[in-house]
Design a protein around this nucleic acid. Structure first.
Lengths: 348, 348
DNA sequence: CTGAAAGCGCTTACAG
DNA sequence: CTGAAAGCGCTTACAG
């Protein structure tokens, strides 16, 4: 299965490998190689169906035109949508994507990081777990092109692409209150993840603004690992302690999904009984809960921003959609906070 | 950002690169290298945090320990679940995964194939579009390790991992009939995709068995591209032509999703009015249509089989879960048809 | 028991 | 205008 290489072409044309390389790299005129030769090379490469060996190219360049993406779970709809958005953006700068699923296991995440480094990927994109901060710090120290997203660690100086967690939560809960809800449950995940904290803060801020009491009995915090199992008990408790609960704010769509299961199993007419709000949603939410209000993550924009920042770090010539010519150089972090789009559906 | 290489270690230890390479490759005793030296090398590599440069390794070996996966759409729940399953299986043979989303565009699919070849991936996994058969034939001619899944092209001699399309459809529709449905609509996709044909055949087979007429008015075929837009008109037509329709068989979960939207928009009490059946489902189906019967694709098993067959072609020493020692060698196609699990939910 | 050396396919200073 | 040559980091016959 002999591949066509530069050598193949060079021998065919009785010419040096170097010349072929220059021409195929598009630096023909720069090197003042005769148009005739250039033509011959281009034609030959075309007709022989030459494809450069990326491995060799990457080896000489010391870095490959592949980017690594580590996701907590590739089968989550949000993360897979992000993956798609990133891949589409990378297309434009001729980079490929290597997607890994850490399954929210720190061990796996670390393994994937070192695997990606072994492959000399040009950059790494990561929605990190908390405990892996050591490895990430390492990446930062090496000034490895890196962009973190979705999750934020205040003491980790990196490039982030985030959403306005607190603000979106605030708006969502504010809306629920304005519509008349007074006993709003907040379902969230153990806040060792900072963004979950922010979402909860947004919830509390809205309550405070309307001079409503913050009732711990209305707050349900589920475990990060195995949250699915936690939801039923948590909801049981809330319904027991505050039977008059009249609305639910879900700090994440994955929590809402589990709650819907619970509601269904318990034959609760949740679409009538409760106002609902959720950070992000699944495509099918509209069917399950037609009136749920949602702060939609701007998936496509997140993907573009991530690639934009990464490209800058990788020194890829690339005209970003936003023509703000940043003065920032490497080692100066670029973090972006994108607003969610608020979708109000209970204005019946 | 100097990486630690074999040379670094060799110089540190005043020893040859070759020796370091042998030991780190685990062939120390085979090469009869003194235990003392081995120990020193291992320790040094460990302490210097050595990670082999996969690019260099792949370049010398002529092939990388990465596998390419081309999906029609990574944000589809079925495909992202498959991706996850494949990645988990590849882990065990120390292969990495490069996931690409063709977005069901033939041009993109072809681009991804050639990109993956440029990266000298060890093998390619693909749920192909029809038109790309040329490129795939090329891969087969080069005896490039290749496994196709989900979609089947009878005249394309390749390794396939498929489900029992006809049988599962038959069982599903047979069940609907046994429960009393007589006017069963079949919603499917233009059958230039063979597996869609098979699913329709299963539907017809069940009708025939029960001596029911096959009514073309009950069959809704939507376009492959932009099927979302087609569903409403198709359902409109069916309801117009056969108002007494009493059940729906969806040849794919993505069709069911769109139908649910339609039902909702038209305020139809579909859970009461119709029996439902679908090939595969989304996690949230249970909430939207608690009584839908489903032929579940065995995602994890599909992933394992794919990797199993691919590993064989890549000559990876690997003990497959099924200890059936196949006699097959390369160029002899191994195709596997896996049964779906029938989930009956309308036995109220 | 260990090392020198060729080679994988490319890029890129350097030389002419 | 074009080529010879070094080097990227590894593997692996070959030699001793």
């Amino acid at each position: 299965m002999g591949h066509i290489t530069l050598k193949t072409i060079a021998e065919r044309l009785n010419i040096s490998i170097a010349t072929v390389s220059w021409v195929l790299a598009g630096k023909g005129k720069e090197r003042k190689i005769s148009p005739a030769t250039q033509e011959r090379i281009l034609l030959c490469a075309e007709s022989m169906n030459y494809h450069p060996n990326m491995l060799a190219r990457a080896l000489t360049r010391g870095v490959s035109n592949t980017v690594g993406l580590i996701l907590p779970s590739i089968s989550d709809s949000f993360y897979s949508a992000i993956a798609k958005a990133i891949e589409l953006s990378l297309d434009k700068i001729d980079y490929s994507l290597m997607i890994c699923s850490s399954e929210s296991e720190t061990l796996r995440e670390n393994r994937m990081i070192s695997m990606l480094k072994s492959h000399r990927v040009g950059g790494i994109i990561l929605a990190p777990m908390e405990i892996s901060k050591v490895e990430i710090r390492q990446l930062i120290n090496e000034s490895y092109p890196l962009v973190l997203f979705d999750r934020f660690f205040p003491d980790l100086p990196a490039n982030y692409v985030l959403i306005d967690n607190e603000e979106s939560s605030y708006k969502l809960v504010d809306h629920l209150i304005r519509k008349g809800s007074r006993k709003i449950a907040c379902i969230t995940i153990n806040p060792h993840l900072h963004h979950m904290n922010l979402r909860r803060k947004g919830y509390e801020k809205a309550l405070k603004k309307h001079r409503l009491e913050i009732n711990p009995e209305l707050i349900g915090e589920v475990a990060f690992h195995g949250y699915e199992k936690d939801i039923p008990a948590t909801l049981d408790r809330i319904f027991h302690q505050v039977p008059e609960v009249d609305a639910f704010f879900f700090a994440s769509h994955i929590l809402a999904i589990e709650a819907f299961q619970y509601f269904r199993v318990h034959h609760m007419d949740y679409n009538r009984k409760f106002r609902l709000g959720s950070i992000h949603e699944e495509p099918l939410f509209q069917n399950i809960a037609p009136h749920i209000n949602v702060a939609m993550m701007p998936v496509a924009k997140i993907g573009r921003q991530i690639v934009d920042i990464l490209a800058e770090q990788m020194n890829v010539k690339y005209s970003p959609p936003n023509t703000t010519t940043l003065e920032t150089k490497e080692n100066i972090n670029r973090s972006v906070v994108l607003p969610c789009k608020l979708i109000i559906r209970d204005n019946n």
